[in-house]
Simulated assay, not measured.
Amino acid sequence: MEAWKVNIISVWLGCFFTGLAMSQILPFLPLYVEQLGVHSHEALSIWSGLVFSATFLISSVVSPLWGSLADRKGRKLMLLRASLGMAVVIALQGFAQNVYQLFLLRALMGLTSGYIPNAMALVASQVPRDKSGWALGTLSTGQVAGVIVGPLLGGFMADHLGLRTVFLVTALLMFVSFLITLFLIKEKVVTVTKANMLKGRAVFETLPYPTLIFSLFITTMMIQLTNSSISPILTLFIKDLAGNNGNLAFISGAIAAVPGVSALIAAPRLGQLGDRIGTGRILMTAMIGSILLFCIMAFVQTPLQLGILRFLLGFADGALMPAVQTLLVKYSSERVTGRIFGYNQSFMYMGNVVGPLIGSSVSAVLGFRWVFVFTALMVFINTMQLWSGLHKVSPPDKS
């Protein structure tokens, strides 16, 4: 088997374990904070927000530094750093004795960020260019599959084995990811020496379309922002639609997870289609579809209607991030790819931090339904900005 195909299989497994690890912890962080001695409603809300956001805040700051190091030393080294670092820090979280220790460890975990973006960059740089859309689309299904399975596995362990066990098993999974990366992934490293490393503005001066690259950064932030803006109000909105339904937790979990199922189906197929007709066209179509679906969600009357619309939204989600990353690879050189992906990851984490704040604020002031309207408006503005950037690309095929 060709080396790049082995890499895709190996990195897919690594992304699956990373998605699994993250998603089987995050839903239960508030419960763990409470177990560590925080009991009042106000304090529990504040500390849950802090321990959740600490990782993303630190990650958004250090991601460009890791991207620079990836250009100099290779991306496999970054994958090893991220997987082993997460294994160690997550294991330590399972032994935290108070919320202050947990907060510090969650912040420290931000330094271990970068497995999935570096995996994307490694695969994108190794596969034939005419297969990059398919490869990145296929790779994205690894994380999505992990995110779908994670809450189910984490919930089972939390109920039957205790919350601390969830952290320890998660750490073990990340160590498995480290071993897969160490022994199976092969990289043809095209490193850049420190003396030849471009600085700051010079990175963007090497790009043929710097405005497009920045628009893609904003799009990455918006993808995360729009998804996470819905998260804080989704269960409450479903409760408002369903009334006093005894299966509220199950219904909410199903509706929260269903976009992942359709994204899993769509991502490799849309990536392959993008290779044929142009990645830019796939990206714009997915964004327009997202706008329409968010608008319609504002008018749903039943949880079933919301679930169907979120399932359809998953098809757009399956196209968005792989398409952005494919275009980033296409319009940046090997010399700066690591830093471009590092900057892109910073914008992704900023979306994770800002999204829940926007969703909660709009909901508090205007109500649940306006969150969907406001989200659609933000995607529309981003779509216009991205269209302007793609319109300047030659040829106008925008692939």
Rank of each mutant, 00 (worst) to 15 (best):
G85A: 08
F178I: 07
V147T: 15
G274L: 03
P268H: 02
L92E: 03
I185H: 02
N344V: 03
V38R: 02
L108I: 10
Q126P: 05
L212R: 04
I282R: 04
I180N: 08
D159I: 03
L139W: 04
L327W: 01
N227M: 14
L168D: 03
D275W: 01
G114A: 04
K199S: 15
G74L: 06
A286V: 06
T302G: 10
L161G: 10
V89Y: 00
L320G: 01
G389D: 08
I116F: 13
V123T: 11
T279Q: 15
G85E: 12
Q35T: 11
T285I: 12
G314Q: 01
K131L: 13
A364D: 13
F52E: 09
M120F: 15
K199H: 13
V38L: 01
L283C: 08
Y100S: 12
T181G: 03
T211K: 14
S125I: 05
I9E: 09
R269Y: 14
F175Q: 08
L179I: 09
F204E: 02
T18I: 10
V373S: 02
L328Q: 03
I46N: 10
Y343A: 09
I288E: 08
H39M: 05
N98E: 06
V258N: 00
L248W: 08
M378H: 02
G94K: 04
T165L: 11
G351Y: 03
I238G: 04
A286N: 07
M78Q: 11
L69Y: 12
V6T: 13
G355R: 02
W387F: 14
A119F: 01
G155T: 09
A323Y: 00
L304C: 02
M222W: 01
M157C: 09
I213H: 05
L77E: 12
K5A: 11
A135K: 06
L173S: 14
F214M: 14
A43L: 13
V190L: 12
T191E: 14
